[in-house]
Each structure stands twice: as C-alpha cells, then as structure tokens.
Design a protein around this nucleic acid. Structure first.
Lengths: 191, 191
DNA sequence: TATACTATTAGCATCTAGTACTAAAAACTA
DNA sequence: TAGTTTTTAGTACTAGATGCTAATAGTATA
C-alpha cells in the first residue's frame, strides 16, 4: 500500500519497524507492501540481519513459552505457599525486570498491590471476594530480582466484610503493608 | 530414551502429553524419543489430529502476540487522553474478560488499582514517582466490557510528597475512588 | 556522453519440516 | 497358516526460506 517513492534507506528503516510491529509477515507480503520484489526484501533482511518468518515466529513462541508459565503463576501473583482459610496465607513473588517502571529498576507499585490484593482474596473463603477498601503503604522501594514474601492475616469479620492485614517483606524487612476490607459475594453482587 | 515396549495406544497417549509439554519438538526428535520411525510419528499425529511443528509454533507465537499488546497497553494501563502535568489527567481503559477473576466476569481489583495508580504517577512531573500511601475504595463491581474513565487531580503538594485524588467512573457512575500519596525521586531513592 | 557504481530483479539449486500417497515388510492374532 | 494391524520405506510435492550467479535499471561522476 506504500507509494514507490521510498529510498533503500527509508524502506529498510520502515521494514524494521513493520516487522517489529507484526512479525508474522512473509517476504512475499512484505514485497507487496513495499512495492518491490521478494528478492529485494531478502537482500534487505540480509543487510539488516533480520531473521526469516519462521525464525521470528520461533522467537516469539519461545519467549511466550517461558512467559506462559510466569503468567499462569501471575494469575495468583506470586506462589501461594501456605494457606489456612479465613485465617492466614503466605505467598512468594520473585520480581524481575518486566515488573519495573521503565526507566528505573524499581518494581511497580501495582505489582506489589496485586500480590497483596490477590493474597488477601485467597485468604478469604468465598466463591467471589471483592476488595472494598484498601489502605496501603509502600515503605521501601523494591528492586527487580528481590523476592517478595507476602503474609496475610484475617484480623476481623463483621457480617459479610472481612478485614485482612497484609505485610510484604524482602529479606525480613517490611516494604509494604496494607489493610484490606473484602466483601464476599454469596448471592448478591451489588455492594 | 524410551524402551520399545510401548503399544500404539500408549505411544499416542504419551505423544499428546509430550507435545503439550514441549511443542518445539519436530517429528525426527519425536521418532527418536519413542524409538519408532518418523513415518510412525506422522501417522500418529494424523490420527490424533496434532498439528505440525510450524503450526504449533505459530499458534503459541500468535497467542503470545495478542498478549504482548495487552501487556504493552497495560504498561500505561489505560489510554492517557488528557494530561496537565502536576494538575490533572484522564485515562480510559476498556475492560475485557482477560481482566476478570476466573469464575465471575467481575474485573479484578488490581486491574482497577493499576489504572488509578499509573494515572496518579503519570500526573506527577518527576523522573520517577513512587506510590507511598494509598487509601482506596471500590464502590461498585466493574464488569468485563465496561469502559473505565479515570480522573486524577493533584490536591496538595508538601515537600516531595504529592497528594493525588483519583476517581474512576463507568458511564458517569463512580465505581472507585482513591487518595494516593506519591513521592518523587529526584536523586535519592530511599524513602 | 560514456563509464562506473548501486539498486533491483530474475532464475536456479538447495534446505527444512512437513503433506499425501503407495507399497512393502513386520508383528500380532484368530 | 491366513488375515489383519502396525510399522517402515520411498516418492512426489509444498511453503518459505537461503545462497548463489547473472542480468537489467537508474543514477552519479569523469
């Protein structure tokens, strides 16, 4: 769909970006896109050392495969290593660079919140538990690579509301603490 | 590495599990693993309707790719549609079923928190802004498919601490509100 | 303008990891 | 032993490439 007024440099620059955006295009489709022959696309890929379609898919697939496992673990956010329903629970989360906020290597607050929040919910024995209120405090920054140990404790139960206190520690030092009020939904959904 | 005492049924059963565990094995490697010919593996795959290596990789890669995009969107968590630095900001997040908590189709609390938290951080003009304290309240459950509009407002500045108030609305109804105290890190990292 | 150089296109052999098919050998089973 | 199932072997073909040589088009320079 591109006009043919592209120089080699321009085309190669765009080629990189296009493949970055969609690695599933084969040489023929790329040739059409840039209004050049398949051979030209191949020469471009050679010069730019861009891998072939199958290699690109393989890379994406393999990256995924290691992630699939961390994502399924991420569903819980951290690994649940101890659970006494309606009483206490412990989860462990190994942080990595994908959890940081771009520039720094400080782990994003929402990652830490997710671990605490999901642990609080897991502690409660209910078909669906919703967070109603949370008062949280981040005490120290967490750096990628550090292991977070979250400990949740149910402190009070009042009607359908449950109060859970969660502390997250790095090597024994408290980096986060939060009080959660959770609502368990037996039948009704409206809070 | 397997002994040859496997029946066809046993081999085919194992084949499924092996490919499930590692989809990157080609027919030749599978043939070696099961001590049969490549043709046998192919017959097995035909009978079980198991796709070929390249197809398997493609599937894994594509599944990943749709996730990659939602993760890159997640980096911001919602789309920033208005920003007046150090004053106010608005972001929009379209929820979907991947954000729910398994059983129900209620959007997970951490997703909502992430949108609010990231918007609060985006509102602050600092190289790195960290969440120090958050007091949040979930007022109504959010269902997959609903569009969340988050509005952040800086309410107070005290030294390096900035107070940001975030409200999230669904069709004008407030479903979440939170007060965030953020700390901007110019030079020092320790809070 | 002729020459030189770059960019592009074309064609062919080769590769991998398969499909689809036919045929034969081997292994069991009645 | 005959019949059936299972396995192996071999050939032709495919997509999406690589690696190579050769020809052509377009532009820049002497």
């Amino acid at each position: 769909m591109q006009k043919k007024g592209l120089s080699k440099r321009e085309r190669q620059f765009l080629l990189k970006r296009v493949l970055d955006d969609d690695p599933f295009l084969n040489d023929e489709e790329l040739a059409e896109k840039f209004n050049v022959s398949v051979q030209t696309i191949r020469l471009d890929r050679m010069e730019l050392r861009l891998p072939e379609l199958r290699e690109r898919m393989k890379v994406v697939a393999k990256r995924h495969y290691s992630k699939v496992r961390s994502i399924s673990v991420k569903e819980i956010v951290g690994e649940l290593i101890d659970l006494e329903l309606n009483k206490r629970a412990i989860s462990v989360l190994d942080t990595n660079s994908t959890m940081t906020f771009g520039k720094s290597n400080i782990v994003r607050g929402d990652v830490i919140f997710s671990q605490a929040n999901s642990l609080a919910i897991a502690t409660i024995d209910a078909s669906v538990a919703l967070t109603h209120v949370a008062n949280i405090k981040y005490k120290f920054p967490v750096y990628a690579g550090q292991r977070l140990v979250a400990k949740a404790e149910v402190t009070r139960v009042r009607g359908d509301k449950k109060f859970v206190f969660v502390r997250i520690l790095v090597k024994g030092k408290e980096v986060f603490r939060g009080k959660f009020i959770l609502v368990s939904l037996g039948d009704e959904v409206v809070l």
